[in-house]
């Protein structure tokens, strides 16, 4: 014997009887999930962008011109021993000059009068996969700076760090919106349930008197909550996808991120947001019933 075949039709008949309130709840959930989703999408893409550029980080160390050429091999050996260094390449002054010549092929005049050895020789350092995190690169940079024979270290930290700071800030905003989403959902769903309970208090009272279990009474409300979560978050994800597709064609990315192609939230994240909304709404519904179900 199972009461489930009676709970499902009761859920739909309850929702039909209280259409407006359920619609408003679903739309409110949709709105909040949309904002949460948008923030997650921005964070996700900023994080990707930062990751991409972090992978291209090369640490460039400038070798002291006074360092005798025979000591350069020793310096290379010392650098290679440092944690996080994957590979190094010694770029001599002449190689550096040749690179510049290639870069300024059309404006050779810029280099006129400069000797082939005006650039210091450098060591170009590739870092290992685990070093992409900025927090881990900093100690390596300090160690390099302290090595005798190295005058300066450059790793394009400013813009990569700014990107990371933006990603971290967006993550904070996403958490804040997540909290707002949680509170709004709790407030809206619990009020809808309470309103429904109030409107149908006589019916629920009668059900209790004829021997309905809490599961039988609570079931349709929890299902209603789950449906509201599903409809609200589903609508939000659809709207977010439409917004994303629209913005992708409208926004021109500036400068160095011109070649970055933003992507929509991955399926597991979308599924997670929808599943989370369903679980949250169902839980709030179940809790809102608790007071009423006390015998």
């Amino acid at each position: 014997m199972s009461v489930i075949p009676y709970i499902i039709p009761r859920t739909f008949s309850n929702m039909r009887g209280n259409r407006l309130s359920h619609l408003m709840t679903a739309l409110t959930i949709a709105f909040v999930v949309l904002i949460f989703g948008l923030s997650t999408l921005i964070y996700f893409n900023l994080h990707r962008l930062a990751e991409n550029y972090s992978r291209e980080i090369r640490i460039v160390t400038y070798i002291d011109p006074a360092l005798p050429p025979e000591d350069i091999e020793g310096l290379k050996a010392k650098v290679l021993k440092l944690r996080g260094v994957a590979n190094i390449r010694h770029v001599t002054s002449q190689e550096g000059y040749q690179r510049l010549v290639q870069q300024f092929q059309d404006e050779k005049d810029i280099l006129a009068g400069l000797g082939e050895d005006f650039l210091p020789s450098t060591l170009e350092i590739e870092v290992t996969g685990t070093m992409y995190n900025m927090g881990r690169i900093r100690p390596l940079v300090s160690e390099l700076t302290s090595l005798p024979g190295i005058t300066d270290v450059y790793y394009g930290k400013e813009w990569v760090e700014r990107l990371r700071q933006a990603a971290d800030f967006t993550r904070l905003i996403t958490f804040a919106i997540g909290g707002l989403f949680l509170l709004t959902t709790i407030f809206v769903v619990s009020n809808t349930i309470k309103l429904t309970i109030y409107l149908r208090r006589n019916e629920l009272e009668t059900m209790r008197l004829v021997g309905a279990t809490n599961f039988f009474i609570r079931g349709p409300f929890v299902l209603e909550g789950m449906l509201q979560g599903l409809v609200g978050s589903g609508l939000a994800m659809l709207a977010l996808f439409a917004l994303f597709e629209f913005l992708k064609t409208q926004v021109n990315f500036p400068g160095f991120i011109r070649f970055f192609s933003p992507i929509f939230l991955p399926i597991p994240v979308v599924t997670g947001i929808i599943a989370g909304s369903i679980i949250l709404c169902a839980t709030v519904s179940a809790f809102s019933m608790r007071q009423f179900l006390r015998v």
């Binding site: 014997m1 009461v3 009676y6 009887g17 019916e203 009668t206 008197l209 004829v210 021997g211 039988f216």
Partner: peptide, 30 residues
């Protein structure tokens, strides 16, 4: 079984559905 002075019938259920409710809560087959 309990019968009340104010009947306690559910307004949005038909006579059949009101009576059937007592059996539905027990999970009896349709």
């Amino acid at each position: 079984g309990m019968v009340f002075q104010d009947f306690k019938l559910i307004e949005n259920l038909t006579v059949f559905e009101n009576v059937a409710l007592s059996m539905e809560v027990c999970g009896i087959k349709k």
